[in-house]
Design a protein around this nucleic acid. Structure first.
Lengths: 185, 185
DNA sequence: AAAAATATGTAGACCGATCTATTATGGAGT
DNA sequence: ACTCCATAATAGATCGGTCTACATATTTTT
């Protein structure tokens, strides 16, 4: 793949990721993708012969890696598990508020939309969540019930993000942050 | 409104609720709604002059009341807060698994899909969540931080439900249930 | 090194299917 | 008789996807 082609491909993934985050699978219409990325329709099927599902699948996995890397970063710079979770909640809260309550979890909407109707995408979302769980678990080694705790923290963060976006308020994230100490004593 | 009309209206809401739960706002195409309910297309706009958004809005609020009532019931028959949350998780897990991983939270998908693009529906979802929060809060009176705890529990349940549906497994719900005691000591 | 051949990518018109919504008409209930 | 509601045909827009033509690189051949 040449330089030009890679750029076009990237611009398409960027636009899709952005649209998905705001409106999910159906919010990322191909017309909107090509309009937002400034790329022609035909090129889409050149770079993504699998069509929309391939495009969305790659976008989800890509977003999963981005968030995953951010998690690793926060884990490394946190002294305790409680501090780590607090940093995650604050960081995601900033992102959400600064985007005008548009950018919550880049996976959740697609995950729910496709859970029962699109196996390849369901699997992609499942794998992203599993990778995040693994990252959390790695930060909790040594604790008893590290497995359960990792799942619990991920559920807590995802749920708080859902409520915060729906209410258009940081309160759910802040409320969870205030109580996280009790859990990770 | 006559008896016949009310029945038709109800059948439409039933079908919409079912479709929404499986596939969200865009999973509930009007063609599917009328096919599943066996009602004619024109009648839809007779009973719901506001079109699809009115139909979905009423379905969401209706599902919100159904779940809310179930929460109240479980709250009444639980001896402690921890027992209550455990019962909620188990009940939702049963519902999810028995439906073939289709029926998670009847609000979450629509909430995420419409959060940034459809204010009336975003508001409907926000109000349903607020009502559930209030129910949880009522079961926690007496505790310090009852407000925070209600939000935390709702986030936990919503997050666990999202993960369980995505992974097609009860594990996230069970894992949270195992750790809930620590939180509500 | 110049020319020819091939691969890579762009570009947009176009297709059938599906979407929500509207309309006109006819029948059922009271 | 008059309201309530059912019914289907249809409109107009948008959806994902395909197609052909064209342009630009890159390699091969001479």
């Amino acid at each position: 793949m040449g330089v030009k082609g890679a750029e076009t491909r990237d611009r398409m993934l960027d636009a899709t990721q952005e649209l998905i985050e705001t409106g999910g699978y159906f919010g990322a219409g191909l017309n909107q993708v090509i309009a937002a990325s400034g790329t022609p329709r035909g090129s889409l099927y050149f770079h993504f012969p699998g069509g929309k599902d391939q495009l969305v699948g790659e976008s989800v996995r890509r977003a999963g890696r981005t968030i995953g890397d951010a998690l690793e970063g926060l884990a490394d710079s946190s002294a305790s598990a409680a501090e780590f979770v607090d940093a995650v909640l604050r960081s995601l809260g900033d992102r959400l508020e600064e985007s005008g309550w548009r950018k919550g979890c880049p996976v959740a909407t697609v995950a729910l939309e496709t859970a029962s109707t699109n196996d390849p995408l369901q699997e992609a979302c499942s794998e992203v969540y599993a990778s995040w769980e693994a990252t959390l678990r790695a930060r909790l080694t040594g604790r008893p019930d590290a497995d359960d705790l990792a799942v619990l923290i991920l559920a807590l963060v995802e749920g708080a993000l859902l409520l915060a976006r729906t209410h258009r308020s940081r309160e759910p994230l802040d409320g969870v942050a205030r109580q996280i100490g009790v859990l990770l004593r």
